[in-house]
Write a protein that binds this DNA or RNA. Structure first.
Lengths: 229, 229
DNA sequence: GAAGAGGTGATTGTTGACAATCTTGTAAGC
DNA sequence: GCTTACAAGATTGTCAACAATCACCTCTTC
């Protein structure tokens, strides 16, 4: 049932995740993968079996994920996967917009020649993927681009916040990628971001990144009309 | 963020803060007030007495504050008040700059007439405080101004993040307020923020807020030369 | 005298049991 | 029939004891 996935620092072992940190990572992965739906109750006893961890560690994991905004804990009522309303999703993305704008600006200030080359390469691959209609590939490249920009910027604080915010709306983002015509809209935006960073123009990079994420917000809002799943 | 019942964290009632949330709030207050210095070890047994709470709740409190970035916990090595380096303080303030910029812009979009009046009142009081050399009073008004702007904006996500970031560098901010000449620098910046929001000009409000916090960053950097206490 | 091994006290990590609380299902009263 | 009261079950909150680990000190060895 579980296929190993990429995405993070260390692969989650399902064999013996006895410690608190392992339980937390495994549970986070499960939620992000959609194995628990928003609003679903997370009963401690069940999680103990699922994660092969003691209740103590399960509890710690839930508390951690609560701080990350992935689950919601109510006193004496247990935990449930946090439901993120459309309004909240917009708020979250607005914050992401300004913070990633900061990251882009800083990336433009610090980019090294090899990194600029790597950015351009991703840009080329993106265009090819869109022209070939390979949505999945384009989506992967999108993730890679944002990650590369963040690594160029080297801004730990901003990084952490963006990562947390991203986690809170994976579900919405997934739905977003299914919107028809999205790649045609976002490709030129991505190219502008790449160009601005490559040209070491912080202001242009920030503006390009904000424009890009701003259009993501518009897309989110349009989804709201189609149906607030 | 987990518990909905947010009691104001003012009174240091040591009488019966038995629950986890109370222990957390009391401990946070103590750290923010400087009763525990950065780098100082937080031994669970000692905290049990200090907070009149069981070790279980103390542990939960430490975990929460770790998620907030106020303390750092190392496995098998206990917790200590997190040391925020100058570089980190700058990073944190940079993120605060863009997020509070977003908040200011949104406040300018949504400000109601009564709120505009209240802003102006704070502006007048600030000027008086500076002219009278009442630093403490000016500092309080500063906090009040930022809080009012945030309440006008009504942006929960941004609010939460700014609040968390603020907590992480209370120590630095305190030192900052002692810098001579600071009020003379920041007063006109505050007045620009107020004017932009009052005039319902989001772009100007964002720019003014960013300029203001940008100068805070400069001040932070200058402190670094004086001595990285 | 320096380096390493080993023991000891202090501190944290974990467990299982028990108490407090909420939810659900059922029955009585209007 | 509908609402309210109550009891049973399920779930979470809390605790105190025990196990694991670490930091420090002493002693041996070269």
């Amino acid at each position: 049932m579980a296929s190993e996935h990429d995405t993070d620092r260390r692969a989650a072992r399902v064999s013996a995740p006895s410690t608190a940190a392992q339980a937390r990572d495994t549970l986070r992965d499960a939620i992000l993968r959609g194995e628990y739906l928003p609003g679903e109750r997370l009963v401690e006893a069940q999680l103990c079996e699922r994660l092969q961890a003691s209740r103590f560690n399960v509890r710690a994991a839930l508390q951690d994920l609560s701080a990350e905004g992935l689950v919601e804990v109510q006193r004496n009522r247990g935990a449930q996967v946090r439901k993120v309303s459309m309004a909240e999703a917009v708020e979250i993305t607005e914050v992401r917009m300004v913070v990633e704008g900061l990251i882009a600006a800083r990336a433009a200030e610090r980019v090294a020649p090899e990194q600029a080359t790597e950015l351009d390469e991703i840009g080329v691959l993106m265009r090819r993927a869109v022209e070939a209609g390979e949505h999945r590939r384009y989506s992967d490249l999108n993730v890679r681009l944002h990650a590369l920009v963040r690594s160029i910027a080297g801004h730990q604080t901003a990084d952490r916040i963006v990562e947390t915010l991203r986690g809170q709306l994976v579900r919405h983002q997934y739905m977003l990628s299914l919107l028809p015509g999205r790649p045609q809209t976002s490709l030129p935006q991505h190219e502008r971001i790449i160009a601005a960073i490559r040209d070491r123009d912080p202001k242009a990079a920030e503006a390009a990144m904000r424009d890009h994420i701003s259009s993501v917000i518009d897309a989110l809002r349009s989804m709201d009309y189609l149906g607030p799943a």
